[in-house]
């Protein structure tokens, strides 16, 4: 069993140059690594209906909503600087773009407050409450 003791470094200096981008969180796994014609085939077909957005991907109906990053947080898209490194080496990633909101998509289910990614955004506030400094 591999005991992974390598460290991942984030080059925060690259953040200044990084552009803001739009991010879609898909309810499926796509075996594709690289650029894609998102605006041509996907963004252009999104319908903004009341309360939710709808679109389809590969013939399947998706329903989604926009979600902001928790206050004080910025979303980062990270890219590996040396993608061919081995398991054992330390890794370095750079910030390729940033986002302060994302659109997440459910397969056929209307977006709601129980969605995993919506709930995950609770953590920063809770973490602050339980780990933050206490003032007397």
């Amino acid at each position: 069993m591999a005991c992974n003791s390598s460290v991942t470094h984030v080059q925060l200096s690259t953040m200044g140059k990084a552009e803001r981008t739009t991010v879609h969180l898909m309810p499926c796994e796509i075996e594709h690594n690289g650029s894609a014609q998102v605006s041509q085939y996907f963004t252009s077909t999104i319908k903004d209906r009341k309360q939710e957005k709808t679109v389809s991907f590969r013939g399947r109906g998706l329903r989604g909503a926009e979600l902001s990053c928790p206050q004080g947080y910025t979303g980062l898209v990270l890219k590996e600087v040396n993608p061919n490194g081995s398991d054992q080496e330390d890794r370095t990633v750079k910030v390729s773009s940033t986002f302060d909101k994302l659109t997440y998509w459910n397969l056929e289910t209307p977006p709601n407050s129980d969605d995993m990614v919506v709930m995950a955004m609770d953590w920063p506030e809770l973490a602050e409450a339980i780990h933050g400094a206490v003032e007397d």
Partner: peptide, 14 residues
Amino acid sequence: QDPVFGYPQFVRFS
């Protein structure tokens, strides 16, 4: 055909 998105919505994916 697009390798990621498939086709325009004019096509019946099913």
